[in-house]
Design a protein around this nucleic acid. Structure first.
Length: 828
RNA sequence: GCCGGAGUGGUGAAAUGGGUAGACGCGCUGGACUCAAAAUCCAGUCCGGGGCGACUCGGGUGUGGGUUCGAAUCCCACCUCCGGCACCA
């Protein structure tokens, strides 16, 4: 038979075509079969796939193909997160319409993904820029609006001057825009918000059940939600009937509250300092902060400053008169915008009190004894409450409980839980997003677009000039409409939705991508969801992943699903870097997957990116490595070419040699061990790198034993079986080469339809084992023994060894520890 | 500052419930094939000392302690790096 060279590009084309024509990975609901929903975060169609995609999607593909062979009904979909800024920027810079730019990119990337051999069900492909998709964004928005979960409010928001739009809090990373990295500035605007805070507690408590999420992602979400438990207390003002509400997590220190502080933006501030000689200071603060991120009054290590209002309040617990100050370190955005200052037990208040010579009174001590010496700094720990009237002597914990209850009884306070999480601002002043389906009417006010009028389509014919305002602001035919309620003249909302809205529910849409009465069919969703494995990068930990959890709960409360959490299992894959840095165009260190495909082929690239490091870990690209996996595949190809004869029946008569029993046994054991190892690595640990290394070892072993087995019929049978199993086990990682060899060695049914091999745990155990002998815990010698050797014999055997004899000599043996099939430790 | 994660050869990494540290790759060294090179194949490769040698002795998983017959793995303290939050009351 002709020996063929390993021509990977020919093989790739052949199998791509076969899979394409057969619709090989189409999935159909089948209640008889166990389902497995494997999802990878869908890409933004930027133009080309990058190594991060290759890694993400290769992991998902191995799992999917593995589950298919295991007999699961696998849903492995893909689509396009196709709305967003880059398309619009291309329009402004290069005059290409966002729609064309997007669809060109999708066309190209789709070809790349197919070339990667990913087992996607292309019949379920979705595209969020298509009206068939964003119609349902609008539908969901209207439902939220009806429930009061979408509302409009004027407030200070994050404005990105480069993107010319507002950003949600989650999209501001350390005062910078998540997308373009430029400084965000505060701006007062009217905006649509989604009430994610309504679910704050559930988003937090839901973590309890999320055992299969990486700890650091949960931590990030927990920090973001930022729950704090405390009390709200009202301090009556002395000279007026008004009062000031404060939030505190330390009511137990309230007897030490010696003054109140207001935020510069507190509603009372302006009025209270009207007559102050220092009111200029306030203006100055405001001036300074115009440039800064909202909620950050004194960026960096700003000096704490204050203005005495001259007004007085009463501490409701002590009845004492205390001054009211305004200070630049009190945030309006958190709590009530006012705090009770307890300088003895809060370092910030301590510094402030020292600067302005305000009284400092300790009311908590570690041991319940009043602190004698003067405080050098605030004592912030919990302890025992002192000098606090009837509460003295209680622990901080007790006191917090009892004081809050007392305040509540008296009617000037209550227990209170606060979250750092803010509502999600979804209005964007840009074109390439979902139009918010709302109409403004002079007479009727805000009116939702009727469901039957959906979708509100993006007008195609608009001008892209950049600069201030959305192109929709100038699209007269889009803006002018009639009020659905009164029929009078009205105006459409021109803001579009944050594109994170689209990705918050796309995993539902995959279940019924063509449905046209609802966003998805509840029965399809109840079959496929939840997502059994969700794979993506950590960068979405508090963006997409928290929004998506929120939407799941919203859709549940709308009665469309029964599920509380959509992603019980999250695999957060590590970044692909080059020379320790993120790959980026500006750094010029991008490795293009296409170049690698040309040089080494798809299978080698897939194999390498999975082999180099475990999926969770960051991984630095190194071209030498891919050469290694390419060589491995090449060796496999050559080996099978050279031994194709084994798969042909006619040469049987020549196999008359004597069977090498020990070689047979070795290979047989290794075969079962490898099936076990690969299966468990994929299924239980997602350690694809060690699965691949065990396949390399296995192949090395096959090569080594081959000459000892190929002269005998029984040996040849095993050899054949071992080689077949190698292809089965390797096929999820390197599907092209495996299918090709499988077919040419006479297997009519493709590997993807072949059941995953099983193993016999007994057969996977070695017959003889190496037992290590230690003396006092130090490795000294070893011996071979049959598996299952009794302790008595093991001990005897170990003590008989010359080396052990010379070490132990006449010393008395105190103890012998025996770990069956592993080790003997002699303690003297 | 608070909360999380991680530190293992020249290098990417293995070691799955405390039991042979460094599997499998990459790189490097030597050899085979070749007029030569590339490719390929074979052997070696944690560090240090001794022996021509099959070998042998000592050290070794960020640092210092501890628990244990035995620790990369468990406990305590610390150092470094990465990520998140941060004048959040």
């Amino acid at each position: 038979m002709m020996k063929e060279d390993y021509n990977f590009s020919k093989i790739e084309q052949k199998w791509q075509k076969i899979w394409e024509e057969k619709g090989a990975f189409r999935s159909i609901e089948d209640p008889q079969k166990k389902k497995f929903y494997c999802l990878e975060m869908f890409p933004y169609p930027s133009g080309r796939i990058h190594m991060g995609h290759v890694r993400n999607y290769s992991i998902g593909d191995v799992i999917s193909r593995f589950k298919m062979m295991k007999g699961y009904n696998v849903l492995h979909p893909i689509g396009w997160d196709a709305l967003g800024m880059p398309a619009e920027n291309a329009a402004i810079q290069r005059g290409i319409h966002p729609q064309k730019w997007t669809s060109d990119n999708i066309f190209h990337m789709k070809r790349q993904l197919k070339r990667m051999g990913y087992s996607y069900d292309w019949s379920r492909e979705i595209n969020t820029s298509h009206p068939d998709y964003y119609k349902w964004n609008q539908w969901i928005f209207l439902k939220l609006y009806e429930q009061g979960l979408a509302y409009r409010k004027k407030s200070k928001v994050n404005w990105c001057p480069r993107c010319q739009t507002v950003l949600a809090n989650e999209q501001v990373i350390g005062e910078k825009c998540w997308r373009c990295d430029c400084q965000v500035i505060p701006k007062e605007m009217e905006q649509w918000f989604l009430k994610i805070t309504h679910y704050a507690e559930e988003l937090l408590s839901g973590h309890e059940g999320m055992k299969n999420w990486p700890e650091h992602v949960l931590t990030m979400q927990r920090n973001w939600i930022g729950k704090s438990t405390g009390a709200e207390i009202e301090f009556p003002m002395k000279e007026s009937s008004r009062s000031i509400k404060v939030f505190t997590t330390r009511v137990d220190t309230i007897y030490g509250a010696t003054f109140l502080l207001l935020s510069p933006e507190h509603p009372l501030t302006g009025e209270l300092i009207k007559d102050s000689s220092e009111k200029e200071k306030l203006k100055q603060w405001m001036e300074q902060n115009r440039k800064a991120y909202p909620g950050d009054f004194t960026p960096g290590e700003g000096e704490k400053e204050g203005i005495d209002t001259g007004e007085r309040a009463l501490n409701p617990f002590t009845g004492e008169t205390i001054p009211i100050w305004v200070s630049n370190y009190v945030l309006m955005e958190y709590g009530t915008g006012a705090v009770m200052a307890v300088p003895a037990h809060d370092q910030r208040d301590f510094e402030f009190a020292q600067k302005y010579s305000l009284p400092i009174r300790a009311v908590v001590s570690p041991d319940g004894k009043p602190p004698s010496s003067k405080l050098q700094q605030a004592y912030e720990d919990y302890g025992v409450v002192v000098d606090s009237g009837p509460f003295s002597g209680q622990t901080s914990k007790e006191a917090m409980e009892k004081m809050a209850r007392y305040a509540q009884e008296k009617g000037w306070g209550e227990k209170k839980v606060l979250y750092r999480l803010r509502d999600w601002g979804i209005s964007r002043q840009r074109y390439w997003g979902t139009p918010i389906p709302v109409i403004y009417c002079e007479k009727c006010g805000i009116v939702g677009v009727p469901y039957e009028d959906l979708p509100v389509r993006l007008p195609y014919d608009v001008e892209f000039k950049g600069g201030e305002g959305s192109p929709l602001d100038k699209a007269e035919s889009f803006i002018h409409t009639t009020c659905p309620r009164c029929g009078g003249e009205a105006r459409r909302e021109t803001d579009t939705m944050d594109t994170f809205f689209d990705s918050s529910w796309y995993y539902f849409r995959y279940c019924s991508p063509k449905e046209n009465k609802l966003p998805f069919r509840p029965e399809d969703v109840s079959y496929w969801l939840p997502v059994d494995l969700y794979i993506g990068g950590v960068e979405h930990a508090i963006l997409h992943l928290i929004y998506a959890r929120f939407f799941c709960k919203v859709l549940r409360d709308l009665g469309l699903t029964e599920m509380d959490e959509p992603f019980p299992h999250l695999l957060a894959q590590g970044m692909v870097t080059k020379d320790g840095q993120a790959m980026s165009k500006s750094k010029g260190n991008v490795v293009d997957p296409d170049d690698m495909l040309k040089k080494y082929g798809t299978d080698a690239l897939r194999l390498f990116i999975l082999f180099a490091a475990p999926p969770q870990k960051e991984f630095d690209w190194n071209e030498k490595g891919i050469e290694g996996t390419h060589r491995f595949l090449h060796r496999i190809w050559t080996f099978f070419q050279q031994n194709m004869g084994l798969f042909q029946d006619e040469s049987r008569e020549s196999f008359q040699g004597v069977l090498d029993e020990s070689s047979y046994k070795r290979l047989e054991t290794r075969m079962h061990q490898t099936v076990k190892k690969v299966t468990e690595d994929i299924e239980q640990r997602y350690h694809l790198n060690t699965a691949i290394s065990s396949l390399m070892e296995y192949f090395n072993q096959i090569k080594k034993e081959k000459d000892r087995l190929d002269q005998n019929e029984k040996g040849v049978q095993l050899l054949k079986e071992a080689m077949e199993k190698l292809l089965m086990l390797l096929s999820p990682f390197a599907p092209f080469i495996c299918e090709e060899i499988w077919e040419s060695s006479g297997h009519p049914q493709p590997l993807i339809e072949t059941p995953w091999p099983s193993f016999d745990p007994e057969m996977a155990k070695e017959e003889t084992v190496t037992i290590v002998v230690q003396v006092n815990g130090k490795l000294r010698d070893r011996f071979e023994a049959p598996r299952g050797l009794e302790e008595e014999q093991a001990r005897e055997k170990a003590l008989e060894l010359d080396k052990i004899q010379s070490l132990v000599g006449n010393k008395s043996v105190k103890k012998v520890i025996y770990v069956p099939n592993k080790l003997v430790n002699i303690v003297t």
